[in-house]
Design a protein around this nucleic acid. Structure first.
Length: 555
RNA sequence: UGUCCGAUGGUGUAAUGGUAACACUCCAGAUUUUGAUUCUGUCAUUCAAGGUUCGAGUCCUUGUCGGACAACCA
């Protein structure tokens, strides 16, 4: 253990351990429903559940809460497993709530037998109407006092497929006047003649989440069942089931989900973005999904670090996406190799450099990591530089190229700008400079000192590539809380595709998902579809840019 | 006009009745062959009112504000 203060969950668990509860055994679980892809909010839960187990020498089960066959798919199961593995966690056992359908059914029968559950013929609307409101008590169903034997018979008939969807439900008989709505005879089973991704057509009745989750925890003997705040009001119901069924009492503890600004983490809304084509899929790099973030260039370590830094508490929160960006920059700064790429190219001609010469320069792969080695990159008379790095009228403190100004080309020579060429409309089409032959990087005897350093790519060897520049997906901090539909806040500039960028030659070897720092631009990763002859890079995050901030301030 | 939960700098999280702190952000500066990184520094915090106590962010009461709960979703 480290010297960090314990969060409230760690305190509870260490207290349980010192009280010898469960003989010190700790078993948590991560219980996703396979009805969508995992997102950053799930990452928090994953890090929490697996992290807690690691801290206290326990284990963590992966359990799919697959009680609603309509929305669940094997595709989601597979993506969830891949994402958890990618994040770096190993589960103890892989379970499915559907593994427990027979047991859950028997639990239901037991409650019926105890006179604590009944079959209701009411429609969904009637049930809702009799349920009351948070401030008004509900009314009992006319079917509430059916004899036990009749309930048993009816429930068996439900299972046997005698009834149509919605025709009957099985409800717990608790208290229609409870101030807690979840105790007003909650539905335990409903009829759905639907194909289930694992049990096929074996069942036509399916347990509600509330009748499955706590019991699944009990079956697995989960010691600490950690979930988000909205399930707090369900806890009395889960405890009621545990007591009446006399099963293992897992302890549920709730924590506040982590909300991040300028994005959404509602699975329903994420699904809508995908199905309506607002993004290119679940793994679109703009999505806050684990798979989207992976494709964007986020690393498992950076996501784990983020989850660690945001902490765990019980109050509502809105975390600045800047923290997430900080975490990935910090990781990639140490670990991503540097490369040079020009995204907004303009020609730079070194007039005093020989026409027919190409030098191979040595460039460090990562100044932060001496073990990262170096690479060779070509230098010649004709180069590509960023159009933004030249201006005819430099503002104060401008360290880039303008007539008469000198800069160093990174890992190459110091050059002095001599002017530019323009087309008939006055647009700059090429920049001219002279180089200082005795200023070569590593063997500079020129004595010239310059403030500015620029990246470049040698034109003859440059690799054309596509660059996806991503911005935040939404224009407002909390799209879900705004008055209008969340889609109206989508950022129209969330993706800018650059098709005429140029990369240095070694980038031909870039492997899909390999991360880089493109000097002075930001961190990028090769897209999953990138190929040597058709390079595609996704911008993970820009570098901090104090000059851009300076320029913005003076405007 | 219910039940439950919550409230500490701009953001997130600590402080477990005893000097309100850490990180991110912001701002200023130093260093820099990435206007990056690194380093230094500055600004800024206990929802309110009572009470208990030698002492309250912490305990109690009341209030205020925010959130959750009325799916055959999870």
């Amino acid at each position: 253990m480290n010297d960090k203060p314990l969060n409230f969950l760690e305190e509870i668990i260490s207290e349980d351990i010192s009280n010898d509860k469960h003989a010190g055994r700790i078993l948590t679980r991560f219980p996703p429903e396979p009805n969508g892809y995992l997102h950053i909010g799930h990452a928090k839960s994953i890090c929490l559940n697996f992290g807690l187990a690691q801290t206290f020498n326990g284990k963590t089960n992966l359990r799919f809460d697959d009680t609603n066959p309509i929305t669940e798919k094997t595709e989601y199961v597979e993506s969830i497993k891949a994402d958890i593995r990618w994040l770096g966690f190993v589960w103890e056992a892989e379970y499915y709530a559907s593994d427990y359908f027979e047991q859950l059914h028997d639990f239901a029968v037991k409650l019926i037998t105890k006179g604590l559950a009944y079959v209701d013929d009411l429609s969904a609307e009637e049930i809702a109407r009799l349920k009351g409101t948070p401030t008004e008590a509900g009314l009992p169903s006319p079917f509430r006092n059916r004899p036990i034997a009749e309930n048993l018979e009816l429930f068996a008939a439900m299972r046997n497929g005698i009834y149509a969807d919605g025709e009957k439900t099985l409800r717990a008989k608790i208290d229609m006047a409870s101030p807690n709505m979840h105790l007003r005879d909650p539905i335990m089973y409903r009829i759905k003649h639907a194909h289930h991704h694992r049990t096929g057509n074996k069942w036509c009745i399916y347990p509600m989440y509330d009748f499955a989750h706590g019991q699944s925890d009990a079956i697995e003997k989960i010691t600490h069942s950690i979930c988000t705040l909205e399930f707090e009001v369900h806890r009395p119901l889960y405890n009621w089931f545990i007591e009446q069924l006399e099963i293992f009492p897992s302890r549920q503890i709730e924590f506040a989900r982590g909300n991040i600004n300028y994005t959404i983490t509602s699975k329903r809304k994420l699904l809508q973005l995908v199905t309506e084509g607002h993004v290119a899929g679940w793994d679109d790099p703009r999505m806050p999904t684990i798979s989207g973030m992976r494709r964007r260039g986020y690393t498992p370590a950076s996501i784990r670090d983020f989850c660690d830094r945001i902490g765990i508490a019980r109050r509502e929160n809105m975390i600045d996406v800047g923290l997430l960006e900080f975490c990935v920059r910090e990781d990639l700064n140490k670990n991503a190799q540097r490369r040079m790429v020009v995204v907004n190219p303009i020609k730079l001609i070194i007039d005093n450099y020989p026409d027919d010469t190409t030098e191979m320069l040595t460039a460090e792969n990562n100044t932060e990591d001496p073990n990262a080695g170096s690479r060779l990159m070509p230098f010649s008379k004709n180069l590509w530089i960023e159009a933004d790095d030249f201006t005819e009228n430099p503002p104060k403190k401008y360290f880039r190229l303008a007539p008469g100004l000198s800069v160093r080309l990174k890992s190459a020579y110091i050059i002095t700008c001599t002017g530019c060429d323009k087309d008939e409309n006055g647009n700059v089409i090429a920049v001219h400079a002279n180089y200082h032959p005795n200023s070569k990087s590593g063997q500079d005897t020129s004595g010239i000192s310059v403030k500015g350093v620029m990246h470049f790519v040698s034109a003859a060897q440059a690799l054309p590539c596509t660059i996806n520049l991503y911005e935040r997906l939404f224009q407002v901090e909390n799209p879900a809380s705004e008055a209008a539909d969340f889609l109206s806040y989508l950022n129209p500039d969330s993706l800018k595709v650059i098709t005429n960028a140029f990369a240095e030659p070694v980038l031909a070897d870039a492997q899909p998902l390999q991360t880089f720092q493109f000097l002075r631009l930001g961190y990028f990763c090769a897209d999953t579809l990138s190929k040597p002859n058709q390079l595609i890079f996704n911008r993970t995050v820009t570098l901090k840019d104090t000059w851009a901030k300076e320029v913005k301030k003076s405007n």
